[in-house]
């Protein structure tokens, strides 16, 4: 897979939603992922295949179940390409600040 595949996979709201759900709770089955989504099971299956082909999702069989995991490695590779070595900490601080200011409920 190439970086093009990663960007193409990310250029879709439904697929980003699936990644958000895995980010919130890693290791879900197809059934878990479909729950509460306005997408057919078939559509979710298709999106997951695209995400897996782009290496954004990794899967693992556990008994009879197939679990889906968010694989952050390609996203990290994108960040490494454009984020300089000294910017990382400042960006993390800015991102924390933004998250704090924008959240209504906080942990």
């Amino acid at each position: 897979m190439s970086m093009d595949d990663v960007f193409k996979a990310l250029a879709d709201e439904s697929r980003r939603t699936l990644l958000d759900r895995l980010h919130a709770r890693n290791g879900q089955t197809l059934g878990d992922l479909c729950e509460g989504l306005a997408m057919s099971r078939q559509a979710v299956t298709k999106h997951l295949a695209i995400l897996e082909a782009a290496n954004l999702v990794a899967t693992r069989r556990q008994g009879r179940e197939k679990l889906h995991f968010l694989n952050p490695v390609p996203i990290n590779d994108i960040a490494e390409r454009w984020i300089g070595k000294f910017e990382r900490d400042r960006l993390a601080a800015l991102s924390d600040l933004k998250r704090q200011l924008e959240s209504d409920d906080h942990e």
Binding site: M1, R25, N26, G27, N55, F69
Partner: peptide, 11 residues
Amino acid sequence: MSRQFIHVTYI
């Protein structure tokens, strides 16, 4: 919450 993660990279 999951108790595991999987990271995949191609080298």
